[in-house]
Design a protein around this nucleic acid. Structure first.
Lengths: 288, 288
DNA sequence: CGCATATATCACAAACTGTGATGGGATCAT
DNA sequence: ATGATCCCATCACAGTTTGTGATATATGCG
């Protein structure tokens, strides 16, 4: 059984008429002749068996039925555009390169999944490296995008996320807050954490010593859990074996790490723009 | 600027092919020839610049792009059908007559509003009357629909709502639960409340006298608020001046009033069917 | 191998669609 | 009023599109 269907072309001119207010202007906008638009309106009415518009001085006026159809037409054309965009996007091939510090790579998962849905033919390379290197590479257009911890000496990019920092110790340990403070440093990218620690403790006039340092959190855990050192991490990295210290511990308050998104100079490709948008949405702080 | 648009006809045959699995069967279903459906598929592919299907032994197989388009096609055609149904419904003229006890008429507001949205050309008459009369009228097809309190002696219809009954007294009065109990009766429709009261008190072996009776709640309020009588109402009718009595008062527990929807015998018109559905949704108890 | 079943392709007739020209109604300026 | 102007409706026609029937081609099955 064949179901009657609307002609999206007719709906499009119908909307153009609604937007412009006159048949002539709609014809202009759509590169049709005036007579064509007039006939299209009448064809639409014939198809629906309804009067949609009437002459009204200059221009036309919609009947209640016409007004009603407006909503349907808009919804249909929106859906149509989504469908076409999607089908076209899936055809886009090429490659994108994205830089990110290894420690933050896990944040990409949802954004990458969505991106692959949208652009299954795009090849995506993820390069892990230190923030300072990544910033240079993206500025040299060796990367399309880079997600980095914002450095004092490499500003720019778009801030998309703040990760509050905390002092942490083993969950069941009394912190050994001796002087100098034994510090374990988890050093993702280019040692932002170290910088932060130096600055915060320095400002508080507190002595400290580097008790342990590692590129991987795993390597640091034993020392911290055993209570041999205090570690500086983002709040999200807390796990059941760790416990955050509040201000009562006497340690200085900590700023947040800022995660920024850098784009290669020049106009980005559409997929690059989309990927940036997805990263902003899914990597960015929950709000919005 | 003219935006490219999909041809819903092509999408419809595309879906038919997806449903049936073969071009030939789809052609059959749509009353096209096989060659037409084949060409339509190819036209769709040309329009999108994508291969949607491939021959696969008997029948065809969709490419990933084809599978992807399926969802879009379904959404678009669903929206198309909604639009057409809506535009057609607005054309339907005629009249419907609906019966309801006056006291429940206020319940109709949302259902009637929605109905008028859907069928602005339909003339709707609301007849208020006693439940027993309404049931007779709807059975005689003098009414299309009737919303009534279910009577022991007029069963049938479809139960759409239960209103729990309560004993109530003035908010600031100690109930005067003397014997015989002074009862105020609000008598909507055909005295279901009175029946209920008689039955409940009779079963509890409790004497009572009719202290006051009125068709309107307003008329009853002074007597009850002043503490001269206990009144029997639905829980929804409680207001700040009234207070419900719980079982500790010694008065017998009460059943619920059942509201039923009756339809005229024979096949209902489409608008009647819709109105019944709306009433079921908006008058019926909140659940669902 | 050949039959049965499906899809693809082709040429053509019918239907549809956009164009330019023309007519008519309403508004505005003089 | 009157003419100028603006805008919509209608018409005939040319160009295009669409569906059909016939035919060619591919695939599985006995």
């Amino acid at each position: 059984m064949r179901t009657p269907v609307l002609d999206l072309n007719l709906l499009q001119t119908f909307l153009a008429v609604a937007d412009t207010g006159t048949v002539t202007a709609a014809a202009e906008r759509l590169s049709y002749t005036q007579s064509t638009v007039s006939m299209q309106l009448h064809r639409l009415e014939a198809m629906l068996g309804v009067t949609l518009h009437e002459k009204e001085g200059r221009g036309i006026r919609f009947t209640p039925e016409g007004e009603r159809l407006l909503g349907h037409a808009r919804r249909l054309l929106t859906l149509n555009n989504e469908a076409l965009n999607d089908m076209k996007a899936r055809q886009v091939a090429g490659s994108l390169t994205l830089g990110i510090p290894e420690d933050y790579a896990f944040l990409l998962t949802p954004a990458l999944a969505y991106f692959h849905q949208m652009y299954p033919a795009m090849q995506l390379k993820v390069i892990c490296g230190a923030s300072t290197d990544l910033v240079q590479q993206v500025q040299a257009s060796e990367l399309d995008l880079a997600v980095v911890t914002r450095q004092t000496h490499s500003p720019g990019g778009e801030m998309i996320r703040r990760d509050p920092l905390v002092w942490a110790v083993g969950a069941h340990q009394q912190p050994s807050l001796v002087d100098p403070l034994p510090l374990a440093l988890y050093s993702p990218g280019a040692d932002v954490f170290r910088e932060v620690a130096e600055h915060a403790l320095g400002a508080a006039g507190r002595h400290w010593r580097l008790a342990y340092s590692s590129q991987s959190m795993t390597g640091l855990m034993p020392v911290v859990v055993a209570g041999l050192a205090v570690v500086l991490i983002t709040r999200d990295m807390l796990n059941p074996q760790l416990r955050a210290l509040d201000e009562k511990s006497g340690l200085p308050a900590l700023p947040s790490v800022e995660i920024a998104l850098h784009r290669a100079p020049g106009r980005p490709s559409e997929p690059a723009r989309q990927l940036a948008e997805l990263i902003r949405q899914h990597v960015g702080s929950e709000k919005q």
